[in-house]
Each structure stands twice: as structure tokens, then as C-alpha cells.
Design a protein around this nucleic acid. Structure first.
Lengths: 396, 396
DNA sequence: CAACTTTCTCCACACCCAGGACAAAGCCGG
DNA sequence: CCGGCTTTGTCCTGGGTGTGGAGAAAGTTG
């Protein structure tokens, strides 16, 4: 079938499309309440949108005490593809225009295999979602990669954990393959956008989203918009020094946050503890599986293993220390913590909170919630869908 | 005489006023090149601005190969008052509409004397500038205070070093006294705006401006706009921890940046060094003056005193360590260092640079200039003038 | 079933603004 | 000094945009 070709012709139409995306189906009258346009003008713009096929009529709305209004919704056949490439796995999801996830696949995969192999996998997963009847084609795709991206062009730049991706034209290539518009961003930024759209960060203008996975990154949202920095590397907090003469890090420095706490560091510490016999729980798991991951630490902690709990607490203190500094500097309205280690849950959260509330000034922490992300692995793909929808729902 | 009452009626007029403010007198044709409006429309808007008296005709421009164009400039009698209240002194300046400083006064003064006493002083200084013939009245005033401000209302909130100012309606009160519009902001933000307007940060969209005076603060500029945070305390980096179990700070914590390096800390360290006889140079100065300031350390260092140099280097390392973290996080296009300690000059700058370039990732530091502010004490007052002019040169 | 409310459409009018025609002013080469 | 050429400024027309009112359509409430 033919996919979406139209784009909003002006800012009003773009505004309306975003309202429908974020608020779901809506009556014409309700839309009118939100946009501050005359009824005549509003009718004209909606009619034009109906003509383009981007929105469709959808029956009558409930009465608000008088004549019933006609409902309007985004075209139900619109489909976005959200791709979240992590260090060790890939998530691919299909959403409708309201960014509801209709289907979601996850597959282990090492980014270091390079863009070609990864793309093959992604395309196979997208095809699988297609044949399962969820989509007949894609109107746009968003994709997140675990490293800095030169944003407008959609090209990774000097990504530390993605050898072979440097300068690879991700946007261009994927757009070719899928035959639809594509936008590329850092995976952490997408997580932030996801939580902003459908998670804990709704209605917060300025917030930080700390993602602790294989590495550590931080999405920065200023005035509702993701801030990417001058060269696209903003939020790269994994290599902030937390210990004067600490552990050696892959980046060449010593004492980096990532070297002391992250999914990878936690796994190493756990294996170490298991080998030296500090924790029977972990030792047993190591013998069973041959190696340990952050998830093993989480289950051990849930079972009350004190070594595991200590590891988490110490890590939380480290991250909390850095976040405390960022809170003083950035004065956000919310801090979201997510990523693979969300399983560590409230033990982690508690020590982060302790550090932040103790080490930042009262004015900045006074009304500052520090919470876990509520979308888990879907945050990234929803954020990816939102990335491309923001792009498509803006005046051409 | 009657002061400016008119305000730009629309975004086009606001745009033109700002172009004239930032670019000085300009021909109609040159303005046309910059605004992308039809000649007819441009002529209409300029005529309206001429009617309001905000701009005036100013003779003929040089020919660009054809008919000579008419010059336009902002009304030469417009006057802004820039006020920069520091912890230990007050700066007051008058500027024209192009934000050129026409007169500048500086007076030692302790903010802790409270808003009433300080205002008396400020008004006296403003009156002095007035009678010297520089202004017949003020069309607007910007004022910076050394603490967090709830921005839209212009009210200090919980300022640590300004007891008695908490909740004082600075904007309202000063507006009453001066009879003109007033805007209030943090002094660090004003310094950033000053350097952006007339200093080293021209044409940089995202940058940080670290001000090291009695305390330490950081102005954050995102996309050309000052970022103030959720509660107006963004940039408050003085209490970021730099040493795990470091010096006790007035805020109640240990190891804060400000406790280890700032104008106040440096003076204490210098006095300590003088008393223990580590530096004959400093000892002599202490005996002569009874106490030491950062300026004494600067002159001692300039004279080659190794103790003074060590103090500066150590301080630079501390600040550099924090800035390195901020650079990783924020990925700015420029870092400006200013404030009272600018006198420490290149010794300080060198150690800051060393730390940042060593501890931040290459992608973020690759093309990152770290420079001293070039406006010195006028940065604050120019920033203050710009604050109010931004306000007045925006659509009503 | 009548009065009131809400929603939607239609239409007249004002305003905005681009772009062309044209006049004014200045440059340059002969 | 004169005639083309360029640049600048003004005037005018026509299309597009958006407001607000009138009134019809559709429902609700008592």
C-alpha cells in the first residue's frame, strides 16, 4: 500500500498532529480549546489534514451539553518503526501514529559486529513484524545507537564502543533500505524522549535521564527538547572521574565512573566476589552459568545476599555522587534512572537519593523527585518512534 | 524628558531593534539583507518604528554601487542602567541602546547590609551618573545579585550569602524607585550574557561561563539563551564535592569546591602561608595590609613567588577537575573563565586547561577553547543592560 | 415540546505581505 | 557632461490568512 507522503503544510497543522499524537483521538471542539485559533481557521486546517489522509474522522464525540462534536484521529494505518541498538542487544518495535507499541522484538546482538551485520538483523526483525500483520509498511523510523551522533546527518562520530560505525551513514543507509524517512540519535536521548512521552517525565520541562547499562550515559532535556551539545556528545558522563587514583578505564584515564560502576563493572566485581568466595550465592551462580551479569547481582540481592547488596550500594553511591554534581549544575525538575540495571531497583535508588540529597543544595533538591524509569526496554523504542514523529509532524 | 514608552508591536520590529542593538547603525538596505522581508514590508515596519521614536534616521549610508541608502539607528537618547551587585562591591553603569558603556561606577559594599542599604547606594550611584550628564532618565534597568533568583518575578530565593534578601521584591522595588521596567537575574548569568554580547562568546550558541569571585558560579547558555533551571539555581557549582573528606564548607558539607578554591578560600590560604612563613613575599604583604586578598596572591605570583604560584595551580586543578566533568556532561562550544580572580590569569588558565583536556573525552574537548573573559568588571553591567534590552525589545 | 447550549458552516471584511512597476539617486565609462 | 547600469525606496495590486458574526444543525434539559 501507499505510505504517508504528506507533511503538515504549516505550524498549525503540525501543532494539531502533535496534539492528536500525544492526546489520542480528540473532538474538533476539544482541539479548538487547545490551539487558540478561530473556529473557521481550525475547520479549514482540519479539512486540509483530512484531505491529505494524515487524519481521519472517527465518529461522534460525547456531548458536552450541546450538539455532539465529530471525533478526529491520526490515520490508524500509519506505522513507525522504533529501533534501539544497545551494546549487547537490539530492540525493534512497531507503533501506530499515537506511538503505542503494537509489536516488540528483542534480540541479543553485539554492536561490535559492525553496521552491516546489525542492519541485516534489524531489517530481518522489521520484516518479521511486518509479516505478522502489524504493519504493511513504515511511514518513518527512528533509531538509537550507543554512542555520540552528529545529529542532523545521523552519523555516529568516534563511538568508543562501536568500532566500525564511525562515520557510517546510518540515516542514509536505513532510509534506503526501508524506503521511508529515518532519524538517528543517541540511545540515551531516545530513552529520555520515551520517558517524556509515555513515562514518568510527562509534563516535566527540564530533566535528566541517567541510563546505566553496559556503560553510563545521561539524556538532557531542556525546555522539553533534547539537548545534544556542540558536537553531539552531551550527556557522556561515563568518564567523569569519581576517584582520584581509581581503577583504570578503557578510555585511558583512571577512576572513571564507568570503570567503577556500570553493567560491565558490576559483572566483573560480582565475578571477583564469587571467586574469592565472599558470597556463596554468587559463587553458585558463577559455577552454574560460567559467568555473571548485572541481572545475577540483582537476583542475589533480592535473595538478601549481603555482598550483592554492598556492591549495589557502593555503585549507587558512586553514581549518586556524580548525579549530585549534575543536579547542582543543571537544577533539573526530575531525575530518571533507567537502563539495564533498573532491576537493581530500590536498593540502587536509595543510595543514589542519599548522595544527592546530602550533597546538593536544598534549593535544587527541595522538590526533586529521583525515580526509576517506568517503561523499561520500551522507553528506547518509544523514544525512537517519537524522534521520527517529531520530525514528520513538523512543517516541511 | 519623556522616556521610552513604546514597545515593538510585533516580532519583526523586535528583530529589527535587536539587529540595530547588536550591529549598531545600519542602512535600511543592509537590514533588508538580514531579515528576509519584502522591501515593502520592511519599509512599513521601519516607518512605524520611526513613528514610535525607538529608532531615528541617521543620514545617508555609503553607496554599495548604486543609490545611497538611508541609515537607521536606535534612538541615541535611550539609556539603560546596568547594576551588578557582588558580594563585596557594587557596579553601576549607564549604557546607550547599543549597550555601549557611557559611564561606570564601582563602590565597595557588603551585600549583607541588606537590600535597603544596598538600594540606597545603588540609587545614589545612578543619580551621580545622571547628574554627570550621561542620562536624563532610564528607559530600563537590569540588575544582577549574587544568588539564585526566581526569574520571572525578580525575587531572590534562599540566597546563601545574602541574608535579608530572601523574598525581597527586588524587581518591584527598583522599578518603583527608578520609574522604569526592571529585570533581575543571577550575577553569573549576567556575566555570561555580557561576554556573549560584547566579549569572547560572540557567535557561540552553547557555552559555559565560570565566575570565580568570592564564591564560584557558572552561567549556562543553551542555544543563545541563558538556562536558569527549574528553581533558578542552575549553575550553582560552588558546592560540588571535589575531595571526599575535604575542608568544611559554610554550607555544612565537606570538600566543596568553594571551600577549596575561590576568592575567599584563596585569601585564607595565602594568609596561612604568610603566617607560617612559607612565602616572604606574602608575609610582607600581610604585615603591610593587615590582611590578604586574591589580588595579593596575583601580584605575588606575577613577581614569581613560588608559594603563590602553587596556590593558584592547585586551585586551578580543583576548578579544572569540576569543569572537566561539566564539559563531558554539557559538551559546550566554549568555556569562559572570569570573575575577580581573572587577575590570576594564565597560571590559573593553564592548570584548568590541563585538567580539562586530560580528563574529558576527545570528542568534547577536540575543538573546545577555554579562555579568560575579556570584559572584566564590565561584563556584569553589560549583561544587565542586555537583560533589560532583551525584555524591552520583544513583542508586548 | 420549548428553551437553551454547543458545534459547525458560511460569509464578509480587515489585514498582512510578496512581488512587480516605477521613480529617485548614485556609480562608472566614455 | 552624458547615457547606461546598479541600487534603493515607494506605490500599488492581488492573493492569502485569519477574525468575528449570523445562522443552521444537533443535543440536552426540564
Amino acid at each position: 500500500m501507499r505510505r504517508m507522503t504528506a507533511r503538515p503544510a504549516n505550524a498549525h497543522q503540525a501543532r494539531l498532529l502533535r496534539l492528536l499524537r500525544d492526546g489520542g483521538p480528540n473532538s474538533r471542539a476539544q482541539l479548538g480549546d487547545q490551539v487558540d485559533l478561530s473556529r473557521s481557521k481550525l475547520a479549514v486546517e482540519i479539512d486540509r489534514l483530512l484531505e491529505t489522509g494524515l487524519v481521519v474522522a472517527d465518529g461522534l464525540a460525547a456531548s458536552r451539553g450541546g450538539r455532539r462534536s465529530h471525533n478526529i484521529r491520526l490515520a490508524p494505518n500509519l506505522r513507525f518503526l522504533g529501533v534501539d541498538i544497545g551494546a549487547t542487544s537490539v530492540d525493534v518495535a512497531v507503533t501506530n501514529a499515537e506511538l503505542e507499541v503494537l509489536g516488540h522484538l528483542n534480540q541479543p546482538m553485539d554492536v561490535r559486529e559492525g553496521p552491516v551485520a546489525v542492519f541485516e538483523q534489524v531489517l530481518a526483525m522489521a520484516a518479521k513484524l511486518k509479516v505478522s500483520g502489524l504493519a504493511e509498511g513504515f511511514d518513518g523510523a527512528g533509531i538509537g545507537v550507543p554512542g555520540p551522533v552528529r545529529y542532523p546527518e545521523g552519523v555516529p562520530v568516534a563511538p568508543p564502543i562501536m568500532p566500525g560505525w564511525d562515520g557510517f551513514p546510518v540515516r542514509e543507509a536505513l532510509s534506503q533500505e526501508l524506503g521511508c524517512p529515518v532519524m538517528v540519535d543517541n540511545d540515551v536521548n531516545l530513552m529520555a524522549m520515551g520517558e517524556q512521552h509515555a513515562g514518568v517525565a510527562r509534563s516535566v520541562g527540564d530533566f535528566l535521564c541517567v541510563k546505566i547499562g553496559t556503560g553510563i550515559g545521561c539524556g538532557i532535556v531542556v525546555g522539553g527538547e533534547v539537548y545534544r551539545g556542540t558536537t553531539g556528545s552531551a550527556g557522556d558522563i561515563g568518564h567523569i572521574q569519581v576517584e582520584a587514583d581509581g581503577r583504570a578505564c578503557a578510555c585511558g584515564n583512571k577512576g572513571c565512573l564507568e570503570a567503577h560502576f556500570s553493567g560491565a563493572a558490576l559483572a566483573r566485581d560480582a565475578e571477583e566476589a564469587a571467586r574469592t568466595g565472599q558470597s556463596p550465592e554468587l559463587t553458585a551462580r558463577l559455577e552454574a552459568a560460567g559467568r555473571l551479569t548485572a541481572a545475577d547481582v540483582a537476583t542475589a540481592a533480592a535473595a538478601g545476599d549481603s555482598t550483592a547488596l554492598d556492591l549495589i550500594r557502593e555503585g549507587g553511591n558512586r553514581v549518586g555522587q556524580v548525579i549530585a554534581g549534575l543536579v547542582s549544575f543543571f537544577n533539573p525538575g526530575l531525575v530518571v534512572i533507567g537502563g539495564g540495571v533498573t532491576g537493581l531497583g530500590h536498593t540502587l535508588l536509595a543510595s543514589v537519593r542519599t548522595q544527592v540529597y546530602r550533597k546538593s543544595l536544598p534549593l535544587a533538591t527541595g522538590n526533586l523527585p529521583i525515580v526509576l524509569g517506568e517503561l523499561g526496554p520500551t522507553a528506547g523504542v518509544i523514544g525512537a518512534a517519537r524522534l521520527i514523529s517529531d520530525h514528520l509532524f513538523s512543517p516541511a
